[in-house]
């Protein structure tokens, strides 16, 4: 195994979504808590791309925000290159860890301050971390960064609204690179973009990874994109990882019924006429998740045990799977 850059262990994040105290008292309602992330653990090796994939509300974006410190974990630990970053206090002790990680966001229209020139947006991490001194040198560095992401140095004088969505996402990447990070957390970086532009951004990210030796945590709902970019993949459902391992392994031989369902649902561009089995039902509310294995109400293989008992992840070949059916070896053959 490669040496790991990020270690996530039993990460938990709950959100209090109760109505205000007064309403609770008057309406006699209990506190309600969303278990957005409920015990997630994985490791990312240096130079790898680890993807988290799942449907909306599965907690994948929350994991991303926990890793970069936008939220603090309710429980569990986060370790970056041997440094503890599990809490706000730990993070301020290890400031270098924060500088070495950056984030790319989903919405290229909201992720850049509309009142700032691109030059100032990209220069901000440089100025904040005092990486380069002197205005001329900063200017020069921003120019280089803009060229590195496929824009021109002169674009620095423009405002974000003068760029298309794809170009803005390039600016976002330039800003992320400005702090000379080793680790980038990418939260759905292409899902707001058109396919042809998505291809440009994915190619750019691959190029940068090769050139700069970056490590990525990649969040996406699109399995095809995930397959394309990642070395390892984790499938999330209602706040938990249900299956994770090497990308090739997961996609060639998915074991968890949810992973199989997701793969089955991808529209077929080859039009081979493959028979699809659309799975009934939708993701239940994370406020009141189903008992036992959270996927059991939608699972074709669910048994009584699945309703009662949450499955523990077991190692199967090169992957980890949390499913009773896998454990009990009653999984049907995968058609893929």
């Amino acid at each position: 195994m490669t040496d790991s850059l990020l270690k996530v262990d039993n990460l938990v994040r709950h959100f209090d979504v109760s109505p205000p105290w007064l309403n609770r008292v008057i309406e006699r309602r209990p506190k309600s808590v969303v278990k957005a992330v409920d015990g997630v653990g994985f490791e990312i090796g240096r130079g790898e791309t680890f993807s988290l994939v799942g449907e909306s509300g599965c907690g994948k974006s929350t994991v991303a925000r926990l890793v970069v410190g936008l939220y603090n974990p309710t429980a569990g630990s986060l370790e970056f290159d041997g440094m503890d970053i599990s809490s706000g206090a730990a993070r301020s002790r290890n400031r270098s860890a924060q500088r070495r990680m950056q984030m790319i966001f989903q919405d290229p229209y909201a992720s850049l301050n509309p009142r700032w020139r691109v030059m100032d947006i990209v220069a901000e991490p440089i100025r904040f971390n005092r990486l380069v001194k002197g205005d001329a040198a900063i200017r020069q560095r921003v120019g280089e960064l803009l060229e590195q992401v496929g824009l021109s140095a002169a674009d620095g004088e423009k405002y974000p609204h003068e760029f298309s969505g794809g170009q803005r996402q390039r600016i976002s990447i330039a800003r992320a690179l400005a702090g000379s990070p080793e680790f980038l957390v990418c939260d759905e970086p292409t899902s707001a973009l058109d396919v042809s532009v998505q291809a440009q951004i994915l190619n750019l990210m691959k190029k940068l990874q090769r050139e700069l030796g970056l490590t990525y945590l990649f969040i996406s709902h699109d399995l095809a994109v995930v397959y394309h970019v990642s070395t390892k993949v984790g499938v999330m459902y209602l706040g938990r990882l249900v299956e994770w391992g090497e990308t090739e392994v997961i996609f060639a031989a998915p074991r968890h019924p949810y992973t199989r369902m997701l793969l089955d649902a991808i529209p077929d561009l080859d039009m081979s006429g493959r028979a699809r089995t659309p799975v009934a039902g939708e993701v239940p509310s994370p406020i009141d998740p189903p008992s036992g294995c959270a996927f059991h109400p939608r699972c074709p293989l669910a048994t009584d045990r699945c309703k009662r008992e949450a499955p523990k992840p077991v190692s199967v070949g090169a992957a980890m799977v949390a499913c009773h059916a896998v454990e009990e070896d009653r999984l049907p053959e995968w058609h893929g």
Binding site: V68, L70, Q98, F105, E124, G179
Partner: peptide, 13 residues
Amino acid sequence: SKEYVQAARVIGL
């Protein structure tokens, strides 16, 4: 709640 503010937080401001 906009992402540019979150980006500034990630930078460490």
